[in-house]
Amino acid sequence: MVSKNSSKPQEKCIGVIGVGSFGTVIANMLAEKNQVMVYARKEEVVHEINSLHSAQGKTLNPKIKGTSSPKEICEACEVLFLMISSSGFQDVVQSFAPHLFPYHLVIHGTKGLCLNLEKGQTLDSVKKIKRSQILTMSEVILQETVVVRVGCLAGPNLSKELTQSLPAATVIASKYNEVILEGQSLLRSEKFQVYGNSDIIGVELSGVLKNIIAIAAGALAGLNLGENAKGLLISRGMVEMVHLSNALGGSVKSVIGLAGIGDLVTTCNSVNSRNFTVGFRLANGEKLDEILASMDEVAEGVNTIRVIKAFLETADLRAPITEYLYRVLFENYDIKEALQFLMKYPFNVDIDFV
């Protein structure tokens, strides 16, 4: 005789760390199939989640429970999705490290980079950095915790469209096929396709580097330079992404896939992209500090430009879009002059990586 409790398989609990725009979207997607627990640092946000089924005004599935305890979510959930901005990523991972074990499976959705510098050093003080001093988010997880099964989620995934259940797709990347299959099983639906890729570093870098090009695309739109110029920028941006990804340990196939060119086209054409918005507002005369202070969430491309510019100081490589955007953002270079130069560069070669 089958007992009442065993007649139906018990749903497992999936954890989501972070309740920003993307974190709440992923939590809602996961809740379509399983119980979900989300971590928020602020107690008032946890109270809102558990009493009003919303997080900072964003609607959440009633099946989602909130907690401010890293210990509780790690004990309840074997699979965790880290949806934290890059600026706070390392600190959050360090706070979770005592509660994470090799049996945990962690998939992050952060499109940014961290620095692996000596104590007391900053990007401003070192100026030049090598690849060994740059960490992708998966490398942060592996360095700071005992977790082995790590993956990342990347692709053209604008939170606003995902909230509206519009058709979309993403990539789960990992060295472990088990991680890819688990991510696909948890997230795939009729309107959300999930592809797999074993090149986790290449997929992470693609999601990071496209943010640089998105800032340039926003500036181009802000100056009303037209669709032909946008096509030129996107194609040159893809070439720059390929060379930078190769130099940092990624493959060409990831850049020309969904997490690379797919995400690049989306963010270079969307007013919902935070990085596009930064470029657009710069082109309209606003200062970077004012723009960033008025934004609810981080535009990852700004920090990425600083990191890649410092890396270029030690690499035998040119990345003109990154270099000129750095001058615009941090050295008061005129954005119109920068874009005029980029529209002409290079002077004779189209594609040089195949």
Rank of each mutant, 00 (worst) to 15 (best):
V265D: 06
K253D: 15
L205D: 03
L142V: 07
K160S: 14
S294P: 07
T314H: 12
M343H: 09
G262V: 07
L325V: 10
Q143P: 04
N303I: 03
I215R: 06
F280Q: 14
L342A: 04
L233N: 09
V148R: 12
E313L: 14
C74N: 03
V106A: 04
Q10M: 13
V278F: 11
R281D: 08
M37D: 01
L342C: 10
N272H: 10
Q10C: 08
K4Q: 11
V208E: 02
A247M: 02
S95R: 13
V194Y: 00
K253L: 10
L181K: 15
E331W: 07
E286I: 03
I134A: 00
S132A: 10
C114F: 01
T267S: 09
V92G: 01
S270D: 05
G218V: 04
N197R: 02
Y103W: 11
I305M: 06
S159H: 04
I84A: 01
V150H: 00
Q143C: 08
K210M: 10
Q35G: 02
K309S: 15
M137R: 09
A247R: 14
L186C: 09
K344G: 12
M83R: 08
I256G: 00
G222I: 12
E139I: 05
A259V: 13
I256A: 05
V92N: 04
Q35A: 13
R188F: 02
A221P: 05
N211K: 01
N332E: 15
K309Q: 08
T304H: 09
T170K: 04
P156H: 08
F96C: 00
N197H: 15
I201H: 07
S189G: 07
M137A: 07
K175H: 13
H47D: 11
E144F: 10
P346Y: 05
G260K: 08
L342M: 08
I351T: 15
R188W: 05
R318A: 15
E204M: 01
G250A: 05
G262T: 06
V148G: 09
Q193S: 11
A217R: 06
C77E: 03
S21P: 03
T136H: 06
F347P: 07
H99R: 00
N34H: 13
F353K: 11
M238S: 10
G112P: 01
G112D: 03
A173E: 10
L113F: 01
L233E: 03
V242Y: 03
D350N: 11
C152M: 07
A55W: 00
K253V: 13
Q184P: 04
A283G: 14
A97V: 02
L115D: 00
D316G: 05
R318T: 15
Y345E: 13
K130Y: 09
K253M: 10
